[in-house]
Design a protein around this nucleic acid. Structure first.
Lengths: 180, 180
DNA sequence: CGACATTGTTGACCTCGACAACAATCCGCG
DNA sequence: CGCGGATTGTTGTCGAGGTCAACAATGTCG
């Protein structure tokens, strides 16, 4: 996890009052990202990257995750952890293998993730009555409470995407992606 | 970490004596009596993830990258390396900072990436004539040749996305993402 | 000239994906 | 019934990347 976001950074580097007006784009009123000084003299050509869906999908995904992480930093829940909690909450008693498979996460990775969530008292693994190998996963009460907070914050995050991407594009993309 | 020769996972108790195949209940102090089980092959509910664009974007990105990596495995070029080569090829003489900034990669990360590409004889860093701090990046002859192969393979990869996503959706998404 | 910013660089730390190996358990079949 | 094979959870390990701090060399500007 990104532990702490203490950004000391030289954000106060605005020792250039005259000359160029800092064109702070109309970003969300969340925090001032230290990305000024983008005074590139010449626009850089993306070349054939312009024809590659993967490039833009990647950039969008990084952008979305950064916003998500920032908004849920108070409760210290990563996107992956959020997805795990959501799936467990919606499918009580499922096994680690099922969970890992539906989220596209390696079983080995899921073990350590659940180990951490267990330590935080959010989830628990009960022995399965039917299969001695399995663990029946479920949320603790604390896990349910925190998931509810996480869902609220995640909904805010999601709502913030609309004006960013444009409402029509947003709905279009969500619908298209859901079918894939 | 590897200090202790870990205990044999869970419940060493099942020593399998002559007794009955007793359920494990006798050995461990089960704090939680209920044993909910899910032996149903029922489809797993994604819950609120269905309303989160980031989830689907992430899944799509992973899927695209896997295909890309597989198709370019012969020439051993990762998506990130491909983007670096493309940008350098289309913007000869640019600096590492500019390159890193346009691709959203940390300067420190870019250093090591270029170091590797240099060792492979694909790129080179020439001293900038105007600024002693900068390196003017460009492709070597071998780099140009390999980039051409990479572009061909990447184009095949891209073409393979059409039937997978549906030509309609593909063009729509590419257009939408490009505007963001 | 001197304070400060930029560029490239290195080191350290952390997350995450991928594999391999393993113990415990379940299943199917002779 | 017993035994080989498959499944599940687990640990170890490796490598790719992201992040941060610090630094030397260099440029810029009051």
């Amino acid at each position: 996890m990104p532990a702490v976001k203490r950004a000391p950074t030289r954000a106060k580097a605005a020792r250039k009052p005259a000359g160029k007006p800092v064109k702070r784009a109309a970003t969300a009123p969340l925090r001032k990202p230290p990305l000024p000084t983008r005074v590139s003299p010449v626009a850089i050509d993306l070349g054939v990257l312009n024809d590659h869906l993967g490039y833009f999908v990647r950039r969008l995904q990084v952008w979305i995750f950064q916003d998500f992480i920032r908004r849920l930093s108070h409760i210290d829940i990563s996107p992956a952890q959020f997805s795990v909690l959501v799936i467990i909450g919606a499918n009580e008693g499922l096994s680690q293998s099922e969970l890992a498979a539906t989220l596209g996460i390696e079983r080995a990775r899921m073990v350590r993730m659940l180990h951490l969530l267990d330590r935080r008292g959010l989830t628990e693994r009960l022995p399965s009555s039917a299969d001695g190998r399995r663990h029946a996963l479920r949320l603790t009460r604390a896990g349910q409470v925190l998931l509810k907070q996480a869902k609220a914050l995640a909904a805010q995050h999601e709502a913030s995407l609309l004006p960013k991407l444009g409402p029509e594009r947003y709905r279009m993309m969500l619908e298209a992606l859901r079918e894939i």
